[in-house]
Each structure stands twice: as structure tokens, then as C-alpha cells.
Design a protein around this nucleic acid. Structure first.
Lengths: 216, 216
DNA sequence: AAGCTATTAACGGATAACCCCAAGAAATAA
DNA sequence: TTATTTCTTGGGGTTATCCGTTAATAGCTT
């Protein structure tokens, strides 16, 4: 039916998906561990119709890879595969050009439907995704804090966010990052604003949901 | 080679695993979404050799299901499948009778080796697992806070832990739980002790790693 | 050069989080 | 019954977090 590529660092799941989509009648051109690996393996002479793409991956994540595809091979359709259905991930992935977004704990039949839809209609949006989109639009209307939400965090902020998920105090984090505690106040407040949270706990939950930190 | 059962609420992964283990030459008797579903489907006339069991599941988790198997069908071997390699999960699962513990992002070959080992040797412990065990033993020697770590949290504590992962203050949590803020202090300190953490952030990270809260 | 923006940094204060000590009540074990 | 553990609540105090306001420095734009 269709030529697929699977990009996911989660090998067991990826392997399982391969078997599954083959059973649906698709061909799998190759598999990749992450975005970099994917780009390295991609041959311009044999391009896939659809790429099943994980979001949180090491080296190069789903957002960047999707963006790269949008720029270089805009006709290749990306089906985003995510653990979570949080609004900002969905919006961001769609902005990066994904044509569909499904959860990793969905039913196999939904995966099948999604792939079929991408091939035939060019997109696959569930009610869940549409709902989040409508939600986000409303937010944009009234103040657009959600746009900042999509802003990629800079390196200092990402570093800070990682420390935030530890039991270090902000003062200790300041020492580790070689800046004043006041600066840390600034990083924190900037992230509160960007991510739409109000407390350190909010930052931690955001960081985990969005794969900023690896839970190991 | 062996008769298997897969228990995991993560349908896509589970389906993939089914294909994979079949390719290894095993038979899959049935699949289940969680512990309750598993027990309901289990037929005493046709018991599996090995059960591939997820840990964090709704309704009835891997710990309880493994414990139940240990009590009722101690000859059935459990291979624990987990997202994380945190010490307390490994120890607790082994105390519940699991004969092996592998990560969900391992290579398919390791899954194969693990199943083979369970059938032939009766167990499969990687260096990672052994390492954590040795680590834990040392801790037990010197004060045994790790034992309390394995203590199952009571309902109030679990409820509290869920609220802890929100942006509510402790005072607000007290209101929601209809207890005094002092009681909340008590819950918090008890969990600090049991889980071996020192701050609210520590609680949040623990809760997420151990599937106390669902990240959705 | 004047203006803009990002980064780092500071003061002061309000609230929340953390922690020690203690004690009554209720459930459980001896 | 008595003893022990568990759950609940309190007083009082230290540290950490959160927040409004302000500003120096450096790089970039017009």
C-alpha cells in the first residue's frame, strides 16, 4: 500500500510497529533511532510516502526532523507518534508540518486508519487533536501566550530546566550554572511565562512531558 | 518454544511485541490490558510459561499482579517490562516474584534472550539489574530506608501525591482533601521518608517515574 | 550615535515550603 | 485491658520560592 519509514529510539516499540504495519500491507523502507539517523539513511532515489515519527528522541527530536522534512521534502507526510496528548506538543508538531498526530497507546486499528488517511486524504486529525487546536486558537485570540509556548527554549533555559527537576535549590542551581541567584529568578520567570505555569512543580511536569529531561 | 501471555495497557507496543515474540517462535495464548483483565482471562486448563508484564497499568498494576501470580501460580514466570530502570521499581518487582526485568527500549534480541533464559534457566538478570540490587543491599545494611521505599503507599498518601504534582499549594491541597494543613505536612514528611526525597520536586519526579500519576 | 533587545543582576517583601517538638484520638496488637 | 502503632492536628520558626520594579552591559539595527 505505502512505503513507510519509522523513526523512534524506542526499539522494542519500533520493531513491533514494523511488524504491525507490514501486516497492514505496507512496506518499511528502513528504521531510524532518531532524526539524525533518519536523515543519514534517507536516499533521494527511494523516498517514503509516510514517516511515522516519535517526538522525544535523543540527538535530533521529532520537531526538528519534521521541520527538516517540511523544508527538504515537503511531499513526505509525517505521522507524529507521541506518548502524551498535551496541547503544546500537538500544536508545535503541526506547525512543523505533521499531517497527523496519534498516541502511542492507541488501538492498532487507529494506526491503520491514520496511515490510510495520510495516503488517501493527506491528513489525519482525530477529535482529540481538533479539540486541542480549537482550544489553542481561543487562547491565541485572547492574548497569545500559547505562541510563546511554542518558542524553542534557549540552551541556558534548557539547562536550568534540567536542574529544576532535581532537588537542588535555586541558589545551588545558580552556583552550578555560574550565575547569580537573581539571574536564576529571571530564567524561572521567563519559563513561567513561556510555558504557561506558575510554580516550580509546573516546570517539572512540563519538562518531563516534553522530554526535556530523561527519566532514568 | 514457549507459551506466553502479554499484559500491557499500551496497545500498540503490546501488539508489536506479540508479532515479535511470535517471530521468535513463541505462542501467545492471549493478551490483557491490565492485571484484572489478565486474571479474568487466565484459564487453569491452559497456563502460560512466561508472562511479559508491564508495571504501570490502570486497574491493577504489575506489582500486584505479579504478587497474585506468586501466590496462585508460582511456577509461572514473570518478565517485568518497564519504562524506567529506577532502583525501587526493580527491587519491588523482584520482591513480588518477577524472574526478570528488562526495559521497554531494549533491543529485540535482548527480549529474545530474556525469554529464552526464563524458559531454560528460570531467570534473567542483566548487569543493570544486578548492579541496582547490590546498591540496594548496601543501603539496607546501613539503615534500610530502602525497605520503607518498597512500602505500598496508602490511599491518602497516593491522593496527596497526585495533588503534589499540580500547581496547588499545600494549603489548597489541604482544603481539597478536607484535612488541616498540618496533616498535609505530615503526609509530605512521611513520603519524604518513605521515598527517600527531600523536596516537593523529588515527590513529583518519583510520582511520575512510578506511574502514580498519569501524564496526560 | 541613538535606539532596540537580550542577558545578567539587584532590592525588598510576601507567601509557600520545610522542619522540630508535642499530643490527642483511633485503630490494632499484645 | 494495656500497649503500640497510625492518623490527625497544633505552635513556632527557618529557609526557599515567588514577584514587582529597576538597571548595567553587550550586541545588533537604523
Amino acid at each position: 500500500m505505502a512505503n513507510l519509514v519509522l523513526v523512534d529510539d524506542h526499539v522494542l516499540l519500533r520493531n513491533g510497529l514494523v511488524e504491525l504495519v507490514k501486516k497492514f500491507g505496507n512496506d518499511v523502507l528502513f528504521e531510524a533511532d532518531n532524526g539524525k539517523d533518519f536523515i543519514a539513511q534517507l536516499k533521494p532515489t527511494q523516498l517514503p510516502d509516510v514517516v511515522l515519527m516519535d517526538i522525544n528522541m535523543p540527538e535530533m527530536d521529532g520537531y526538528d526532523t519534521c521541520q527538516w522534512l517540511k523544508t527538504n521534502y515537503s511531499f513526505i507526510k509525517v505521522l507524529a507518534l507521541s506518548m502524551y496528548d498535551n496541547e503544546s506538543s500537538i500544536i508545535r508538531m503541526i506547525k512543523c508540518g505533521a499531517k497527523g498526530y496519534i498516541l502511542k497507546d492507541c488501538e492498532p486499528n487507529e494506526l491503520r486508519r491514520a496511515i490510510d488517511a495520510l495516503i488517501n486524504k493527506g491528513y489525519y486529525y482525530t477529535d482529540m487533536v481538533s479539540g486541542k487546536l480549537i482550544n489553542a486558537i481561543n487562547k491565541i485570540e485572547e492574548e497569545s501566550s500559547e505562541l510563546k509556548n511554542l518558542t524553542k527554549l534557549n540552551e541556558r533555559e534548557t539547562d536550568f530546566l534540567k536542574y529544576t527537576c532535581t532537588e537542588l535549590t535555586y541558589k545551588e542551581i545558580a552556583d552550578k550554572m555560574y550565575v547569580s541567584p537573581r539571574t536564576i529568578d529571571g530564567y524561572r520567570d521567563a519559563l513561567f511565562e513561556k510555558l504557561g505555569v506558575k510554580t516550580r512543580v509546573g516546570l517539572v511536569v512540563y519538562a518531563i512531558k516534553n522530554g526535556i529531561i530523561t527519566l532514568n
